[in-house]
């Protein structure tokens, strides 16, 4: 056991080890995004479907809290480790070139830390808005449906009817997908799961996945603002 712990510490202190942690936690978060989006798209099937889906999730507190804690741990590890990598990287470079030139690094790859920071702010806001329900009345009796369940449908409609919230959501989704467009293929690179033969497919899948997440998630506030969901 002690030996395994030692091996992990050795692994984590290496540059590759830290990157593998970023990749694995990133992969978990990428997976969550799809599940979360598919669940929320039930809003298009009407109040009954999405409210019963939410009630079903809450009927398994152990699973729900296990997933929440696991995701938060991944989120925290992902951020903590990347910050450590960024600090090390700045130190390694030392002086900067007077004449700056970029050959092939993508815009997304060069702004990961900035897109990441804005995504953190968004996640905090998003959790306070719909999960903790801070500074709103989404926990009140007005948000109980006829079956006595929490009225998630009404909460989403009201939440996204406020234009600034929807705009911030869409802006954050755009940044998230910008972040993913580099992150998705990076997972395969870092975990040693790519060759030149598969690289084209992996990159294309990354762009497609990012686009699906963007369109799927943004369809909700857009439909609410357009009045298609009431």
């Amino acid at each position: 056991m002690n030996l395994t712990a030692n091996s992990f510490i050795k692994f984590y202190s290496s540059s590759i080890g830290k990157k593998v942690i970023v990749a694995i936690t990133g992969l978990a978060l990428i997976g969550f995004l799809l599940g979360h989006m598919v669940g929320n798209l039930k809003i298009f099937a009407g109040p009954e479907k999405i409210n019963s889906y939410a009630a079903w999730l809450h009927s398994m507190p152990l699973v729900l809290w296990g997933a929440r804690i696991g995701l938060l741990a991944c989120f925290f590890m992902h951020i903590f480790t990347t910050v450590m990598l960024v600090i090390q990287n700045r130190r390694s470079k030392g002086s900067r070139y007077v004449y700056q030139h970029t050959n092939k690094a993508s815009g997304a790859s060069r702004t990961m830390i900035w897109s990441g920071i804005i995504i953190i702010c968004f996640v905090i806001y998003h959790i306070l808005h719909f999960t903790v329900r801070f500074a709103n009345d989404y926990d009140s009796s007005a948000y109980i449906d006829t079956m006595g369940r929490h009225d998630v449908y009404k909460m989403l409609i009201d939440g996204f009817s406020w234009l600034p919230a929807s705009l911030f959501y869409i802006f954050s989704m755009a940044l998230l997908c910008w972040h993913l467009s580099h992150g998705f293929s990076s997972v395969f690179q870092t975990l040693g799961l790519r060759t030149d033969k598969t690289w084209g497919l992996i990159k294309a899948s990354g762009y497609a996945y990012s686009l699906i997440i963007f369109i799927g998630n943004c369809s909700i506030p857009v439909s609410i603002l357009a009045g298609w969901l009431t």
């Binding site: 090390q88 990287n89 390694s92 092939k104 690094a105 790859s109 990076s186």
Partner: peptide, 14 residues
């Protein structure tokens, strides 16, 4: 490589 103080790869392929 780590001991010499080289940085970490961020998959930019420069």
């Amino acid at each position: 490589m780590d001991k010499e103080g080289f940085g970490n790869c961020t998959n930019q392929y420069e």
